[in-house]
Amino acid sequence: MTSAAVPPAPVTPASPDTGTASPTAGPPALHAAALALGDDALVLSHRLGEWAGHAPVLEEEVALANIALDLLGQARVLLSLVGDEDELAYLREERAFRNLQLVEQPNGDFARTIARQLYFSVYQNLLYGHLATTDSPLAPLAAKAVKEVAYHQDHAEQWTLRLGDGTAESHERMQRGLDALWRFTGEMFQPVPGLDLDWQAMREQWTARVTEVIEKATLGVPEGPQSGAWAAGAGREGLHTESFGRMLAEMQHLHRSHPGASW
């Protein structure tokens, strides 16, 4: 491990609206990109891991754990490109994490978890799908991960349909979940330095797919803004929501209690 205990270089917040910002690829930009995507996967994996033993049906214990494991695998590869995976996961403070605020949102009920999965898996599938076709050093990882993520997306879409078009109660819960998380979806399309992607096109593809699934599920596409009062992209700059600190406290406590120990 070389530099992970030091907070990573700040992500350049410039030009959030151009949709095409793409700093030259090089170690700092590559690290920033790997950290952003790695933190997304790490944090969402952790949240899904909280479902273990609490899922509504045994098949979902298996499915949610499977998705969590895929994401954790992605996180470990990505973080290892930046430094020591454990130092990065366990010894950074909240403000040094670069994940989207969406993935850190608490699980809520099953519908809210599915809404979070829908928004994120459609995004991650597009992102990895496009990234796999570039000459980025992350392309091989993306090509492998996109196969896993296609399953995650299918899982989320199938449940969105079941809940949306199931009973009156499930319909209402699913709509509430979609509405509650909508304001965290805008930040997904803020360009991540080091990733040479057409973010505007990705946003359009994401919106088209999510709209199609939501409407097929007899639900309504949320109408509110896609970002909160803070500029979209806050998570990528290390600004998180309150519950994230407690999530990290739980995640990091044991590791931090035994400095220098190996496990």
Binding site: P56, D109, G166
Partner: peptide, 12 residues
Amino acid sequence: EGAWVREAAAAY
């Protein structure tokens, strides 16, 4: 707490 999920899946 999962009853409504299973009911929804069955209804769907």
